[in-house]
């Protein structure tokens, strides 16, 4: 499947245009959110509890109606049921009817997605096998552990071979081995060109998987970009030397760059223009400093996230 030439001919897999949502009691869940997710992209949405992440996903899936604004999935307005034909959704805290077995639940949801007969049965069994539930396919869900329910939740996402997936905390309640498996599945989907919209509190997970990240705070999309863009710390470099750098060399350097600071391994310099790093290296070598490593400094996603929040904790480092 080639999402770039999808049937809908949509330039974006997801379009959110100036979406506002106000719940009863004047609770502003979303305030003019606008974003686009390209086909084949993995987009991570970060935010604190109550930031509006789940509300945004629910608006995209027509579970919640926006107060203002419009959303489209694969080029079709979210209000139309057909917009969800090629969509898989794993809600946070999902709950299956406990009178179903793993297999009957998948067949039930597959039926609602328009699948039937032998292909549906085969698909259900294949997914149960893929998510390690083949042994429990005839067991009632009420006897499942949290991890098993989460894996079943993921299995139902893939029933209709969706091109667009919404995953709300997909690894919640799953053990480390299971998490690695799920990450592997998502990476495989990414390679196959599927679009994934990921809500997660696990920043490391988002950092590993996502092409782009949006940070939602109090209903507003405060940051949005690629991981590299968000974590970039500007023209800040760390230089490690074999021996301590003499103080006069550091002072001479200080006169040529925006700032310089001695560190245990060497120095950290901040330049006005990253092209100036060549001159720094030339000066150090000319003064006989034996260089061992030159690294571009980056912020962690956690630092970026915390610093993006309006009322961020005081210890949160600025990017």
């Amino acid at each position: 499947m080639e999402p770039a030439t999808d049937a809908a001919g949509a330039a974006s897999a997801i379009t959110v245009a100036d979406v506002h949502k106000t719940f009863r009691g004047d609770v502003h869940a979303l305030r003019g959110v606008t974003l686009e997710v390209a086909p084949g992209e993995i987009f991570g949405l970060l935010g604190r509890n109550g930031a509006g992440k789940t509300t945004l996903v629910k608006i995209l899936l027509d579970l919640v109606r926006p107060t203002r604004g419009a959303t489209r999935l694969l080029g079709v307005t979210s209000r139309a049921p057909r917009a969800r034909r090629e969509v898989g959704y794993l809600p946070e805290d999902h709950r299956f009817p406990d009178y179903h077995t793993a297999e009957s639940a998948l067949r039930f949801y597959g039926g609602l997605s328009g699948l039937r007969g032998a292909p549906l049965r085969a698909r259900a069994r294949e997914l149960l096998g893929r998510f390690g539930l083949a042994h429990a396919r005839r067991r009632k869900i009420r006897g499942f552990s949290k991890g098993m329910k989460q894996r079943l939740g993921l299995a139902q996402v893939f029933l209709a071979e969706p091109r667009l997936l919404f995953l709300d905390e997909p690894t919640d309640g799953v053990d480390p081995v299971g998490r690695a498996q799920i990450r592997g599945q998502l990476e495989e989907l990414k390679r196959r060109g599927h679009t994934i919209f990921l809500n997660s509190h696990l920043l490391s997970e988002v950092e590993q998987l996502c092409d782009r990240v949006g940070i939602l705070d109090q209903g507003t999309l405060v940051r949005c970009g690629t991981i590299a863009e968000l974590t970039s710390a500007g023209a800040r470099f760390a230089v490690a030397a074999a021996d301590p750098i003499p103080a006069d060399v550091v002072a001479e350097l200080g006169a040529r760059v925006a700032s310089v600071q001695a560190t245990a391994e060497g120095i950290e310099v901040v330049l006005d223009d990253e092209a100036g790093i060549d001159a720094v290296v030339d000066l150090l070598r000319a003064r006989g400093v034996r260089l061992r490593e030159l690294t571009r400094r980056r912020h962690s996603l956690e630092q970026v996230f915390l610093s993006s929040l309006r009322d961020a904790p005081p210890e949160g480092p600025a990017p």
């Binding site: 057909r82 969509v87 999902h94 709950r95 299956f96 009817p97 949801y109 609602l112 997605s113």
Partner: peptide
């Protein structure tokens, strides 16, 4: 009411059915 429990209805309404 069972269908409308938190987490249950999401699984249904996310399907292509009005």
């Amino acid at each position: 009411p069972d269908l409308m429990q938190k987490g249950s209805l999401d699984l249904l309404l996310a399907r292509p059915i009005g």
